[in-house]
Design a protein around this nucleic acid. Sequence first.
DNA 1: TTAACCAGGTCAATCGTTTGCACTTTTTTT
DNA 2: AAAAAAAGTGCAAACGATTGACCTGGTTAA
Lengths: 340, 340
Amino acid sequence: MSVSIPTIKEIAKRLNVSVSTVSRALSNHPRISEKTKEAVKELAKALHYEPNSKAIFFKQKKSHVIGVIVPLIYEDFFSKGISGIEAIAMDNGYTILFGQSYDSIEKEKQVVDAMKSQRVDGVIISLSKETNKNDHLKVLDAYNIPIVYFDRVPSAANVNKVYSNLFDGTVQMIEWLFKQGRKRIAFINGPAALIASKERLDGYIEGISRRKLKVDMQMVEQTDFSENGTHRAIARLLSLKKPPDAIISFNDYVHMDAVKCALSKGIKINEDILFASYANISVNKHTAYPPVVSVDQFPYKQGEAAMKMMMDILSHKTDGVEQPDPDFQNCELEALLVFN
Amino acid sequence: MSVSIPTIKEIAKRLNVSVSTVSRALSNHPRISEKTKEAVKELAKALHYEPNSKAIFFKQKKSHVIGVIVPLIYEDFFSKGISGIEAIAMDNGYTILFGQSYDSIEKEKQVVDAMKSQRVDGVIISLSKETNKNDHLKVLDAYNIPIVYFDRVPSAANVNKVYSNLFDGTVQMIEWLFKQGRKRIAFINGPAALIASKERLDGYIEGISRRKLKVDMQMVEQTDFSENGTHRAIARLLSLKKPPDAIISFNDYVHMDAVKCALSKGIKINEDILFASYANISVNKHTAYPPVVSVDQFPYKQGEAAMKMMMDILSHKTDGVEQPDPDFQNCELEALLVFN
DNA sequence: TTAACCAGGTCAATCGTTTGCACTTTTTTT
DNA sequence: AAAAAAAGTGCAAACGATTGACCTGGTTAA
């Protein structure tokens, strides 16, 4: 089975040259003659030599590994985000070290520590729910590990971040619903504590106001994301004297629960009431009642953008030297409407 | 910003002892006096010293990193599997290096190479679709990197693998449907080339036969997983003189498409026809028409089992020494019925 | 008294690779 | 033909931590 793994030493010995010559030959150093280079490369290939990245990265203080931390990988949004991150990483010869926070700060810290101890070159993170602080990530500073925040970003300005503009997307969605002739647009928001809720609500208010209509808070409900919570919200909306003719759900899960409840009350989905949502799961196209319109945040693209930003930061890092004035990057992607 | 990262050397210098003393003090070596140990540990804490795993792993030829390769992370099944893997890894001080094959052998090779070059301690892999060979993983042997196959396992016996028994699960599902009084049970299978299709079909045939009924291949349809493919299958089943009173779909995606189509033909879901499926997505509980019964493969548990197996293999690996007779582990988990 | 022993350390090699510097040969320039 | 430049290599240190072998000074047993 496992014969000893070939090293640069082995090649040097067999060719009767020094290890430094081999090292330089393999990296195409100009001071090495073509003849020697060829001999070395040939033998390297014959032995299936592969540089030991552990040793190299140890020496160069680089790992070519990026840590990626998300709250929950089985949320479609994040798994797609990771895919985008991974694609760009691969293209650049980087690999991904992976961790989940399960929306717990405690776990998040733990994962961050693991990443630190593995000496990743950088960390891309989507903060755990309800967190917009990033103190527990300060430890990475000491190790000079850059951080790119992704989607769930801290509010502070002095960080690198990639996120999408839900505000504009929401305004657009309402504009579109108006164009379909809907005037009583209801909104099932998430818990008020979430930044994501505030963003959406602000967009909702702006969208409604822009049409010179007054905002009716009767039309704004709230859910804790449980099926019951959503059912209560829907039930109240449907029991209004003037029930809505369009309902925007916080996300696709809420949307599905909303539809389920509305169906049971005999509502004709997307006829009596148009259902809209924020796209975050991909099964919609398979379900019987997808939302007619969604605000899509393009998680894959966001992932790509985050990794590109990371690559950029890493390439500008003057190795080992103190950064005089780190420029923080801010990438706001547009959220767009998609129709089913 | 980044002051230099503390090393063992730094501690030694400040305490005027040798690096070896520091190293031993930190690892609680009996030869070091309590006094020295305490002094060292105290300073280490004060400086926020953290061992450089790159250096350690380089020296010890261990990385404490496990490579995990799955076809598609945004398939619920795999993201849950990864979560299970990650949980056990965390508990054991391991981290996960992550890669997707996108069901392409080419990509799979690429990822395997990346893992190899990162010198992971082991690889857990779910093979890309339609592959049950593992030749391209042989390269890992040369580096003595153990492999645990997960869910999509090769048919060869001399490998470590974890998978679930779909055959039994399918038989059980049919038994249950019979108990509900259903006698005309149809089955929408996947492409014949897939092992997963064969497993299910075998279970189906066994389940039907066990009730001393003859298997009617009219009741077995096939889909290529496209919405149209599934619609065609459903359409044909519904147009039979004796249409089915139960339909088992290959998976939840197929199930949703099937329901969508059946609805449009006026079928009362789960009344006229009971719908069953193989659980692989978690949104089912939110959808309006979940399958009444599913065969669940418990991906999270499978992930845990795979990682535990890996830990076991790693702990039995007599470091550096040639393994005389590697014992291959085989873990077949039971797939169980779940009801909605 | 002297060898034997022990506690508590230190030394130095090692892992695989990179890289600045020094050292030979050539080749070129004067 | 001598000096200078260029080309091609080798030496050895370095990265951070581990570890077997080797000191040192004191206590104990013979």
